[in-house]
């Protein structure tokens, strides 16, 4: 928004104030993550000093060493990676098909289906946790990572369809018509035209699915009780409750587990922002 530019002096003051607000806000937002990195890399003796040091002193990697020797952390990370990969593949596939059905076809039950999707997305998952737990127990799906991945997908597919639908609709109808005249079937159009054109939105959807699954704690802690099958979130949470876990080890855990999504995010940031906001704004 344009700010009134009465005089250059006033303009300068506004600018200064704006930068100040921006810097203070960025520092506040970044501080918790900075503090995590600092504690993870710093000798515990320095960490527990008062007043605290706001820059790294005598850094070491002992926390990471403890983390991986005290716990099957490598295993936990692999479990999370596996669940998140399966969930991402399932979600993206189902999401593309679902969004295509909603954007390109006319069928009975479409409105009901859309409502169920919207509702699923808004529904607090924990409210249906008992029957889902019972279903899992009945069919011996507890401690099954693939079942967990499908469970994650079920709650993310709606968001993904929601993001993809406006993107699919945005394709000019002439393109679709031309392809039809050339004898393309609907599935061919999806494969050859819709998916390539909408790849940014599809990447965004993949990232959303990956984050949701990687970050999930509720379903993991409910369904997985075998310590070797813990996803990283559940494994790390179990180290919080052990009071004797050294703080450096704990924060190293947060670092190792929190970093992959952030790195992934840096690479795909462009797609995610445009994809998500398009979905959010057009609804």
């Amino acid at each position: 928004m344009a700010i009134v530019r009465g005089s250059s002096k006033r303009y300068l003051a506004y600018d200064f104030l704006r930068y100040l607000v921006i810097i203070v806000m960025s520092v506040l937002v970044a501080f918790p993550i900075y503090w995590m990195i600092l504690t993870a890399l710093q000798d515990p003796n320095v960490t527990l000093q008062y007043p605290p040091s706001f820059y790294p002193k005598s850094p070491n990697l002992l926390g990471f060493h403890q983390l991986f020797t005290d716990n099957p952390m490598g295993r936990w990370l692999l479990n999370s990676a596996f669940v998140a990969s399966v969930a991402t593949a399932v979600t993206t596939t189902f999401g593309i098909l679902g969004a295509y059905a909603l954007s390109n076809f006319r069928w009975r039950g479409k409105i009901l289906f859309s409502f169920i999707l919207l509702f699923t997305q808004m529904m607090p998952e924990v409210l249906v946790i008992i029957p889902i737990y019972e279903i899992f127990a009945k069919f011996h799906l507890t401690n099954d990572l693939i079942a967990l991945a499908f469970l994650h997908s079920a709650f993310v597919v709606p968001v993904c369809i929601w993001i993809l639908k406006p993107a699919f609709r945005g394709i000019p109808k002439e393109v679709n018509e031309a392809a039809q005249i050339d004898g393309c079937s609907q599935m061919k159009i999806l494969q050859k035209i819709v998916i390539p054109i909408c790849s940014p939105a599809i990447i965004a959807v993949g990232v959303v699915a990956f984050f949701a699954s990687w970050g999930d704690f509720l379903w993991g802690v409910t369904m997985i009780s075998d310590r070797n099958l813990f996803p990283a979130s559940v494994g790390l949470a179990s180290t919080i409750s052990q009071l004797n876990t050294p703080v450096q080890e704990l924060l190293s855990g947060a670092f190792v587990y929190g970093l992959p999504p952030v790195i992934l995010y840096i690479f795909v940031q462009r797609y995610v922002i445009s994809g998500l906001t398009a979905g959010a704004i057009k609804g």
């Binding site: 918790p32 995590m36 949470a237 919080i240 924060l251 947060a254 587990y257």
Partner: peptide, 10 residues
């Protein structure tokens, strides 16, 4: 982008 459990630990 930061997972909930890691945020909770922090």
């Amino acid at each position: 982008a930061f997972p909930d459990v890691a945020s909770a630990i922090i």
